[in-house]
C-alpha cells in the first residue's frame, strides 16, 4: 500500500526571467515503512518535491496523494513531521518546551504532553536534557531535539530535508545510526533529502536519484541491503555496488556538467 504517490507531478515557478521547471514528470510511489532518500545536485528539485509532499508548495500539474488525501489535506490533518536543515529551536524555550510546542499547538491534554515529550526525548537519547536551553547543547544534539519535536505528535510520515547537512562527518555517522534504529522501532515512513551518496545508501530502502533543469527523477534504486545495518556495512561489496549505481545515475543526469 502506498503512503505517498506522485503521478506526472509538475511544478513550474514563474519568475521575471521566464518559467523555471522545478519539477517535471515526477512519478513515484512510497510504501508504508519505506526509508526513501532523494539525492541529486542543487536545483534538481529534491527539496521542492519534499515541500510538495508537505503541502508547503503547490504543484502546477499532475497528482500527488499523501495518506490517500491531497498534500494540503494531509498537512491539515498533521500527517507528517518535518525536519529542516537547521534545528530551529526557540532560544526562549527549554528542550522539553521546544518538543512540547507542536503538542501545545495541536491542543493535547497537559498530562499527555509531558508523557509524549519524555518518550520522544528518550527515543533520540536526550533524556535528562529536558530543562536545558538550546544553546547549552551541541549542534548534533539540537538536531536530535528537532527530530524529537517532529516525532512528538505521532505522525506516520517523517520528512527530513538534509537534516544532518550542517554537521561534521563523525556526528553525522552517529546520527545516521541512531536514525536507523529509531526508524526500526517506530516503523515510520521516512523521506530523506541528502547530498551525500554514502548517507543515502546507508539509510535507505529506496534511493531516488534526481537531476536538474528540469527537476526530474532519473533512477529509482531498491536497496538490497539487509534491514540491520552496522556502520561497517559501508565497506561491503553490495554497499559499494549500490553507491556506484547512484553515482552513475547522477552522472547520467548530467549532474557534473558545470
Amino acid at each position: 500500500m502506498s503512503v505517498i504517490e506522485a503521478k506526472k507531478l509538475e511544478l513550474t515557478f514563474q519568475t521575471n526571467d521566464g518559467p523555471v521547471h522545478a519539477l517535471a514528470d515526477v512519478n513515484l510511489e512510497i510504501g508504508k515503512g519505506d526509508f526513501v532518500s532523494f539525492i541529486g545536485p542543487s536545483g534538481c528539485g529534491k527539496t521542492t518535491f519534499l515541500r510538495c509532499i508537505a503541502g508547503l508548495e503547490t504543484p502546477t500539474g499532475g497528482t500527488l496523494s499523501v495518506n490517500g488525501m491531497t498534500a494540503d489535506e494531509a498537512r491539515r490533518s498533521r500527517a507528517y513531521g518535518y525536519v529542516f536543515q537547521a534545528a530551529g529551536l526557540y532560544p526562549w524555550r527549554t528542550i522539553a518546551g521546544n518538543v512540547r510546542l507542536p503538542l501545545e499547538i495541536m491542543g493535547y491534554p497537559k498530562a499527555e504532553m509531558s508523557d509524549r515529550v519524555a518518550r520522544v526525548l528518550e527515543l533520540v537519547e536526550l533524556s535528562g536534557f529536558e530543562k536545558k536551553y538550546p544553546w547549552q547543547l551541541s549542534g548534533g544534539m539540537q538536531q536530535r531535539a528537532s527530530i524529537a519535536r517532529a516525532l512528538a505528535f505521532d505522525a506516520d510520515i517523517l520528512l527530513m530535508d538534509e537534516p544532518f547537512g550542517a554537521l561534521d562527518e563523525i556526528v553525522r555517522d552517529h546520527l545516521n545510526e541512531q536514525l536507523l534504529s529509531l526508524w526500526a522501532r517506530t516503523e515510520k515512513t521516512i523521506a530523506f533529502v541528502t547530498h551525500s551518496i554514502p548517507e543515502a545508501v546507508y539509510l535507505s530502502t529506496k534511493i531516488v536519484v534526481m537531476s536538474p533543469r528540469p527537476g526530474r527523477i532519473t533512477d529509482v534504486i531498491d536497496s538490497s541491503l539487509p534491514k540491520e545495518r552496522p556502520l561497517d556495512i559501508r565497506d561491503s561489496k553490495e554497499f559499494l555496488e549500490i553507491a556506484h549505481r547512484v553515482r552513475e545515475g547522477l552522472r547520467a543526469g548530467h549532474a557534473y556538467d558545470e
Binding site: G55, L56, R75, G81, Y82, F84, G88, P102, I105, F153
Partner: peptide
C-alpha cells in the same frame, strides 16, 4: 523556515 515549521503543524 520557522514560519514553514508552524505551517507544517497547521498552526
Amino acid at each position: 523556515m520557522q514560519l514553514d515549521l508552524m505551517k507544517t503543524w497547521s498552526a
